[in-house]
Design a protein around this nucleic acid. Structure first.
Length: 524
RNA sequence: GGCGCCGUGGCCAAGUGGCUAAGGCAACGGAUUGCAAAUCCGUCAUCCCCGGUUCGAAUCCGGGCGGCGCCUCCA
């Protein structure tokens, strides 16, 4: 099954064929670094990190670029409000962004170009647009001439007149057409400014992405990603200015992820949407509230992801939570939901522990294939087990081939867990241990497959610190003592004392597990 | 008003023309256990409503009801 991708540009799923055989260029619109990242900022990176992992696994040489917007109105205003230097603030927030990406396991981005380091490229682009009649200077600003672009609106599916119909009338605007947008903005005193042929100023919102994607990926590249909220106007304008400038197609596939929402966080308010209207002021307020009800902004989820999310949930759980739903669907931020996903993940961690106990091997040391071509043949013994493994791998890859259906793939992971646990149960591997070489080898193959497939989602690359035994010698020593005391009690059928020990530990969020080969414990 | 998305078991969520409608959480029954924990086995949905197309629809078309996004430099 060939890889198929839903392309916003054509509104259909298409077979994926890169511009240059074997190579893929990918661009994702990054953050404006003016405040700490919230969980919504992590959605795109996690999704496209997974996309890159899968493309790489499928044999492509992928280059992935994410820009850092370090000059922008929001940033300038924020710095002014805080009485801080723009550059300092941007630097601090960029570090915060990088920290969070690292925690989320997003480590496949090849380059983070900064807007402020690409002003010459932007100026060059603007000049070329003016030369071609696609842009015009106006009082120190430069605007893109939307009417000069016959294709304008093809990405978001709206015509210029439709755009205008939904736009508030900007009374004092001297632009040729209200739909024209700024490529260059003249700066006021005290604002960051760069010299330009049109006077000191700074770039418009969209031009940086056009300039930087072109510089690092070429005029025409494969995949352009971003949140659905950027479809219009940002991506539409980016596309227009790039294609008008180069005369070539811009991105071949446009991927848009659904947005994180906050149902139940802000409370719902009834009311109809009516932007045109004749509604009374009182209704307008209710209308606004209704529109805000599901926004992440203003909800608990909009707080810094570090304080609001990572304080309660392991980043790997959060990543799994984001990938359990298809990337084009909206997803509700909910602590309960994330915790639920955490429980399901725990069953996989327990399987990993069981494997390590049986074999004495470290799961995270297992060597997995990094490409589909080299994935293990899965033709060992027992044959029934391997036939099942093959089936599961095919199902998993079919899901991923179908527009990166990570939700379906996650389901296969749990089926794989069930298959492996069933195998361990039926062969009594826990009790037999290493003595059964064939079954241990088979188990290792199965676990290697689990690691390979989970790895494509960016999880199970390294151990997480919170499960399993203790983190210090004292705790381990005490637990050893209690477990051996309890073992003695059980041997002497003194179940009252034995259960007193176990119940007491339960109250301390420590769970005991009596297994065939002894008693284990974990903190919940 | 324009453009677009969605409505699958108690909750979350795959599946978008045809094998028994994935999987997770919760619940219930059984195996196992001294009892538990963990694990395994089993139970739990005619897919918002109406109509149409088709040999056959959760899946396509029309209508209705309900939820939501963008058109505001929110990722």
């Amino acid at each position: 099954m060939p890889l198929r991708i839903y392309n916003t540009l054509t509104r259909t799923k298409e077979n994926f064929e890169p511009v240059h055989p074997g190579k893929v260029g990918m661009y994702l619109c990054g953050p404006t670094v003016y405040k700490p990242a919230h969980i919504g900022h992590m959605v795109g990176p996690v999704i496209f990190d997974t996309v890159k992992r899968y493309l790489t696994y499928s044999g492509y040489d992928v280059t992935w670029i994410v820009n850092i917007t370090d000059v922008d109105d929001k940033l300038i205003n924020k710095a002014r409000d805080l009485g801080r230097d723009v550059t300092d603030l941007a630097k601090e927030m960029t570090e915060d962004y990088f920290d969070n990406l690292q925690l989320m396991g997003v480590d496949t981005i090849d380059r983070f170009p900064y807007a402020t380091e690409h002003i010459p490229e932007m100026l060059d682009m603007i000049s070329r647009l003016i030369e071609k009649g696609h842009a015009y200077p106006l009082n120190g600003d430069v605007y893109f001439r939307t009417e000069s672009d016959d294709d304008y609106g093809k990405l978001s599916g709206r015509s210029i007149s439709e755009v205008l119909a939904g736009t508030r009338v900007e009374a004092n605007d001297a632009k040729e057409n209200p739909a024209d947008f700024a490529l260059w903005k003249s700066s006021k005193a005290g604002e960051p400014a760069w010299d330009s042929p049109w006077g000191p100023g700074r770039p418009g919102w969209h031009i940086e992405c056009s300039a930087m994607s072109g510089k690092y990926l070429g005029d025409t590249f494969d995949i352009h990603g971003g949140g659905l909220d950027l479809l219009f106007p940002h991506h539409e304008n980016e596309l227009a200015q790039s294609e008008c400038c180069t005369g070539k197609p811009f991105a071949k596939y446009w991927l848009h992820n659904g947005l994180m929402q906050a149902s139940g966080q802000a409370g719902k308010v009834g009311g109809q949407h009516d932007r045109h209207g004749d509604t009374a002021p009182a209704d307008a307020t209710a209308d606004q509230a209704a529109q805000m009800a599901n926004k992440l902004a203003g909800s608990a989820g909009a707080e810094s992801v570090k304080t609001a999310v990572f304080s309660k949930h392991h980043p790997e759980t959060v990543r799994f939570f984001l990938l359990a739903t298809h990337y084009r669907s909206p997803i509700d931020f909910s602590d309960e939901r994330i915790a639920e996903v955490g429980k399901s993940l725990d069953t996989l961690y327990r399987l990993i522990e069981t494997y390590e106990r049986i074999t004495g091997q470290n799961f995270y040391d297992l060597q997995v294939s990094t490409t589909r071509e080299l994935s293990a043949p899965l033709d060992g013994q027992p044959a029934e087990l391997f036939a099942e493994l093959k089936l599961l791998r095919d199902r998993y890859l079919d899901c991923m081939d179908d527009d990166f259906n990570t939700g379906g793939a996650v389901g296969v992971l749990f089926d794989l867990r069930k298959t492996i646990n069933g195998f361990i149960n039926s062969t009594k591997l826990e009790a037999e241990g290493k003595s059964d070489a064939t079954n241990v080898t088979a188990l290792t193959s199965a676990m290697t497959l689990l690691k390979e497939l989970a790895g494509l989602l960016g999880v199970f690359h390294k151990p997480i610190e919170t499960t399993g035994g203790g983190d210090n010698e004292l705790a381990n020593g005490l637990m050893e003592l209690l477990i051996s005391l309890r073992a003695t009690c059980r041997k002497e059928k003194n179940f009252v004392i034995a259960d007193q020990i176990r119940d007491g530990l339960t109250a301390l969020n420590i769970t005991l597990e009596d297994r065939p080969d002894g008693t284990g414990w974990r903190r919940d």
